[in-house]
């Protein structure tokens, strides 16, 4: 640990590396439960008959719907374990996220989510020496189109 840096040689080597790829189907019920949990009555998330008559033709996923179906593969936990194993500090906070919505995601779509570490940095915060990792996840649908990109910030201290 030269100069007391949190970023080990192993961590540096992870930048740009694809860590995990999972494939999952977007279920109608998962969309409905997600919409209800937000408290969003939008019929595009709740009412399949309504949604069928719209330009989307099916229930669509609320923005940021990458939770439950993706979590089945537990990529977040895997990613944390991976980072800690590579020498990152063990205490973890979710720092935030950025989404780029490219195309609608709808019920029945089969998505492939690929995770890679885009960036690792560190600075002094009120938590002490703190490491910031940006995990980039790209979601591609069954037609091969990128539908969503996200960049999550993982805070470790």
């Amino acid at each position: 640990m030269a100069n007391g840096s949190l970023i080990t040689e192993e961590l540096r080597k992870l930048i740009g590396v694809t860590l995990d790829t999972i494939v999952f189907k977007v279920e109608e019920g998962a969309i409905q439960r997600y919409g209800q949990a937000i408290g969003d009555p939008n019929p595009l998330y709740n009412d399949p008959d309504f949604a069928r008559k719209t330009k989307y033709g099916r229930l669509i996923a609320p923005p940021g719907f990458t939770g439950w179906p993706v979590k089945v593969g537990r990529p977040t936990e895997k990613l944390f374990a991976f980072l800690v194993k590579a020498g990152a500090p063990p205490r973890i906070l979710d720092g935030g996220i950025e989404f780029e919505f490219v195309e609608p995601i709808g019920a029945g779509d089969v998505l492939t989510a690929t995770t890679k570490i885009a960036k690792v940095g560190e600075r002094e915060t009120r938590l002490g020496k703190t490491m910031f990792t940006t995990a980039e996840v790209t979601f591609v649908n069954q037609k091969g189109n990128v539908v969503l990109r996200s960049w999550a910030t993982i805070i470790q201290f």
């Binding site: 997600y34 949990a37 937000i38 408290g39 969003d40 939008n42 609320p62 923005p63 940021g64 939770g67 979710d94 935030g96 996220i97």
Partner: peptide, 15 residues
Amino acid sequence: HGALKRAWLGQLMTD
């Protein structure tokens, strides 16, 4: 959950 607050912000904008 931070992600719940994020989802609220999604609803803010789509509404």
